[in-house]
């Protein structure tokens, strides 16, 4: 299935929007100290959330992990609510109660939570509800490579495959769990080899090519809507910045600058811009304009967040029960 020009622009624009919003976080996080929430940046990984979420319908549901900013935007989360949440304001996505790792937009069908594997069974439960209700919605569990080390994933996979539930498991493999490389956590076999079973063939693709991510997700979603049960896709990608926080960390010894550089050569956003310019989908000036536009969006949203009201202390106990 070819992707039309307009949709290619859409894929690019979403990745750029995410990148520039997060670059704004990088710019102000340490310097201005306004975002008092542990922040796991998706910089370098934008293609996965973008390609996956843009392959979904609005009523499909996404359940993301701690590294959830990209998925939040790609599923339609508002940029003002994003910056306000990071700045702890009442008009934040979670009214300052959830922070960076719980970014959510229930009306856009996205929830996030940072305990590894915590959202995987929730996605399966949403899929169970879809099956019981007879809708053709799909639930997506979007999580990193370490989530698939958690016991609850095995429980969730077993249940989902047994019940043939409409759920898509996405493994966003960025090679690292905090500061530990995959080879120091898992056997030599691949994640897909270990997840696969006769009823489910797990597949792995380049997660830095947004068109690949999009097309593979579209194919998986089609199978799921046909009633063929859960699908599992691993997308290989890489985060540039430290596990949590705005800095580079190749001087800390667990990975090399050379490795980071090599992955930056494969940058999903820049490479896609070049590709679209080469193909005549966008002109160089268009790319510059889009850069300006989304930079300004991020600036304005951050400034607006700083002017937004704090939650009232009287509201501390709201929404407990």
């Amino acid at each position: 299935m070819p992707i039309d020009r307009e949709f290619k622009k859409k894929l690019f624009a979403m990745m750029l929007k995410i990148r520039l919003a997060e670059e704004k976080v990088v710019e102000v996080y340490a310097k201005e100290q306004q975002m008092r929430t542990p922040t796991h940046l998706s910089i370098g990984q934008e293609a996965v959330a973008t390609g996956v979420c843009l392959a979904l319908r609005d009523d499909d549901q996404v359940f993301a992990s701690h590294r959830c900013h990209a998925a939040y935007f790609a599923k339609g989360g508002d940029i003002n609510a994003f910056f306000s949440e990071l700045c702890g304001r009442e008009n934040g996505s979670n009214a300052g109660r959830g922070g960076s790792a719980h970014l959510s937009a229930p009306e856009k069908n996205i929830h996030s939570s940072p305990i590894l594997g915590g959202m995987v069974p929730v996605a399966v439960g949403a899929a169970l509800a879809f099956q019981l209700n007879g809708t053709d919605q799909v639930a997506v569990g979007l999580a990193g490579d370490a989530t698939y080390e958690e016991g609850v994933f095995a429980e969730s996979l077993n249940f989902a495959v047994w019940k043939k539930l409409p759920v898509l498991f996405i493994c966003e493999n960025n090679l690292y769990s905090t500061n530990t490389h995959l080879r120091d956590r898992q056997p030599r076999s691949t994640i897909c080899e270990r997840v696969s079973m006769p009823e489910l063939k797990a597949v792995s693709f380049d997660g830095n090519d947004v068109e690949v991510v999009y097309l593979k997700t579209v194919a998986a979603i089609k199978k799921i809507r046909q009633g063929r049960g859960p699908q599992f896709i691993e997308f290989l990608t890489y985060r540039y910045r430290e596990h949590v926080g705005p800095n580079y960390d190749y001087d800390k010894g667990y990975r090399t600058k050379q490795e980071v550089d090599e992955w930056q050569e494969k940058c999903p956003v820049e490479n896609y811009a070049r590709k679209l310019v080469r193909a005549g989908v966008l002109k160089k000036e268009d790319v510059q304009e889009l850069n300006k536009k989304y930079s300004a969006y991020a600036d304005q949203a951050y400034q607006k967040a700083l002017r937004s009201p704090w939650p009232l202390k009287e509201g501390l106990l709201e929404n407990v029960c």
């Binding site: 359940f63 929730v122 949403a126 509800a129 019981l132």
Partner: peptide, 26 residues
Amino acid sequence: NARVIGTPACENAMTGIAIGAALNGK
């Protein structure tokens, strides 16, 4: 069986599954 669903032994996932279902009105 449609409304009384026997499950595998998976207490944690089962609870998460209940959460996901409850989120969708079940």
